[in-house]
């Protein structure tokens, strides 16, 4: 056992490991905040669609060779969030179809563009699939973060958390009963928009780390777990933040020690917690 601790201690001397930990925890914090809202407003489809859009945008950024690909990915994803929200609120089926169209389209285009880019650059196809794999599932090595990445992540996280805290009560009102909110003069459209934009921001900052396919899991699982046991909005959010932080911390440590890909390790931890909480809620219900 002490061997493991020694090894960890050694690893945490390295700045790259510390960066990974900071970024991972911040992403876990941000992504867990809006989980309940996403589930309850049936916005999960937006989360899913957006992560695919972000993938496509990433491919475009790669092909244009922009040094800071955030400049493309962020605005594209935010605009898509707004568009998806609009279409999603129309009649149900059409909205679903639109989301599917946009997300699958973005995926296909992104993959194609990446291939074209590599042909021009004269790289082998195995490189492309490695690139694609890491944008979809997160990089296998998380130790490549630069200080600039870390700073971007910190700034974005501060923005997300601040927005969430400032609008916490409004987000609750709009999530719980949108008609009531609208009827009593709360500008629910605006807050829906805000929620969509914040989700877009979270997806973009989380994408480099856990990969675009796994982000939804990171957002939704902690909330679902917390909802098994807790009954008030506030306690569910606090609990999902705690779950998310613990899972991310554990996931990162395990992935460093065992060399597993970080995104899927964290999600595995989240799933485990979900099953534990489901079991607990089953037991407590039976006990009553």
């Amino acid at each position: 056992m002490s061997e493991v601790f020694d090894k960890l201690h050694m690893y945490f001397q390295l700045p790259s490991v510390r960066y990974a930990m900071i970024v991972g925890l911040l992403i876990a914090l941000c992504s867990s905040l809006l989980g309940v809202t996403l589930v309850m407003k049936r916005f999960s489809f937006i989360g899913d669609g957006l992560s695919h859009v972000a993938f496509g945008a990433m491919a475009v950024a790669t092909i244009t060779g922009i040094t800071n690909n955030m400049l493309i990915i962020m605005p594209v994803t935010i605009i898509s969030a707004v568009l998806l929200l609009r279409t999603g609120q129309n009649t149900k089926i059409k909205g679903d179809a639109a989301v599917a169209m946009i997300s699958v389209g973005a995926l296909a285009l992104g993959y194609m563009l990446m291939n074209i880019a590599s042909q021009k650059g004269g790289r082998t196809s195995s490189n492309v699939s490695a690139d694609v794999c890491s944008t979809l599932f997160g990089s296998t090595s998380i130790l490549t973060l630069s200080p600039a990445d870390v700073w971007i992540c910190i700034v974005m996280s501060v923005i997300v958390v601040t927005v969430f805290l400032v609008f916490y009560n409004k987000i609750f009102a709009v999530t719980f009963d949108e008609n009531f909110a609208k009827a009593t003069g709360v500008r629910s459209d605006m807050y829906n928009l805000l929620i969509a934009v914040v989700i877009a921001v979270i997806i973009v900052i989380a994408m480099n780390f856990v990969g675009s396919l796994l982000i939804s899991a990171l957002i939704i699982f902690p909330a679902l777990s917390a909802m098994r046991l807790f009954k008030s909005f506030r306690s569910v959010i606090i609990c999902s933040v705690v779950i998310s932080l613990i899972c991310a911390g554990l996931g990162i440590i395990v992935s460093i020690l065992a060399g597993t890909p970080v995104g899927s390790t964290i999600v595995t931890a989240d799933i485990t917690v979900f099953f534990i909480f489901s079991l607990l809620s089953f037991i407590t219900k039976k006990g009553r």
């Binding site: 609750f172 719980f176 008609n179 003069g185 909005f233």
Partner: peptide
């Protein structure tokens, strides 16, 4: 009728207070 979904985590206090939102 309020379409509150099953499982929505919200306490009585949170809901009543949300009436003050406006």
């Amino acid at each position: 009728q309020t379409m509150v979904q099953r499982d929505f985590p919200a306490s009585v206090q949170e809901i009543v207070l949300s009436g003050c939102m406006n």
